[in-house]
């Protein structure tokens, strides 16, 4: 089941997510939209093409796509299927998880700076600025979950979560919102970033990969989509009820996957991207909610703050 799930995450989920989101957005807007399979076609097309590479670039630009994919692939292995053990797990694996994504970000940003284009520099600066809010909030949330459960690895934390005291419902719901915002921020979706924009000044993720083409662009897209799926898997782990078997976990994940895809599409259809200067405020919501969850736990555990 674990292997099957991992293959599903690698080969189907990333494309399905983007396909579903785009389809839902199109339907919402009254269009028929591209088929859900379109991201597969796009990627295969890109893999068949040749490339144009800027003369200004160096080895960093060429290394970034494969390293980004490798990091996303590793991140999948570290996150468990709901109510199961992850393929790779050890105490403190969530630290490696966050830092692996950090390494991918470092390469992505360095590759953007490699082109010497000021647009890409702008995107890079925004990416790291927003990441600087996301990552500490993620650690506050994971630390809080470790505090609730007394465990230090992803699978153990999520498994014990259901057998903990009643107030974990509160922690879970706060954590859900935190991870949903993380999904929007890390997945470069509205209201943080707009994947459809065609004006370089307003882009974040898209502008950083502006100079990529052909197979390298395919690598970059795949890594970014896979990262979104990983966050969804985390969310599924957090909210999955106890007592469902591996198959139930898989079903639960699939259902949640579709719901989240539609939620992302709904957010994207209902609101515009925030002004750049307002994005940090939105992401700070993550920090605020994570701290709230922590305070709740402290209050219930010790009866005082």
């Amino acid at each position: 089941m674990k292997i099957l799930f991992t293959l599903f995450v690698y080969l189907i989920a990333p494309f399905l997510l983007i396909g579903l989101v785009n389809k839902a957005k199109a339907l919402w807007a009254g269009r028929r939209g591209a088929p859900v399979r379109q991201p597969w076609f796009d990627l295969v097309k890109l893999l068949r093409k040749g490339e144009i590479i800027s003369r200004t670039t160096s080895f960093v630009f060429r290394l970034a796509p494969p390293i980004n994919v490798a990091a996303a692939v590793l991140a999948v292995l570290l996150v468990p299927l709901p109510r199961q053990q992850a393929l790779l797990h050890f105490p403190g694996d969530f630290v490696l998880f966050a830092y692996t994504l950090g390494l991918a970000r470092f390469m992505l940003v360095a590759a953007a700076m490699d082109t010497g284009s000021s647009f890409e520099g702008m995107g890079a600066a925004r990416e790291v600025t927003f990441a600087s809010i996301v990552e500490p909030a993620f650690f506050i949330l994971l630390g809080t979950l470790a505090l609730v459960t007394g465990d230090t690895s992803f699978a153990d934390i999520f498994r014990s979560l259901n057998y903990s005291a009643g107030y974990t419902v509160l922690v879970k719901s706060l954590g859900t919102i935190v991870l949903f915002i993380m999904l929007l921020a890390e997945g470069s979706r509205v209201p943080v970033d707009d994947p459809n924009t065609h004006l370089e000044l307003t882009m974040i993720h898209e502008v950083m990969i502006l100079d990529y083409s052909g197979p390298d662009l395919a690598f970059m897209h795949y890594a970014a989509w896979l990262k979104s799926v990983v966050v969804i898997t985390l969310l599924a782990n957090l909210v999955a009820p106890s007592g469902i078997g591996p198959a139930g976990g898989f079903l639960f994940f699939s259902a949640l996957f579709v719901i989240l895809a539609f939620s992302v599409a709904a957010v994207e259809s209902l609101m515009a991207r925030l002004r750049m200067s307002h994005v940090p405020q939105f992401i700070f919501l993550m920090t605020a909610l994570a701290i709230t969850a922590f305070v709740v736990v402290l209050f219930f555990r010790y009866g005082r703050i």
Binding site: L47, K49, G50, E51, I52, I53, S54, R55, T56, T57, R62, L63, P65, P66, I67, V69, A70, V73, T115, G116, S117, F119, E200, L210, D211, G214, P215, D216, F219
Partner: peptide, 23 residues
């Protein structure tokens, strides 16, 4: 592995050198 994969994919492809996209 992915670095090698990238090299394999690009081996037969045409790779053009050009200046950075200046919008």
């Amino acid at each position: 592995f992915f670095i090698l994969l990238r090299t394999m994919i690009l081996r037969r492809k045409k790779i053009a050198q050009f200046k950075t996209w200046d919008c």
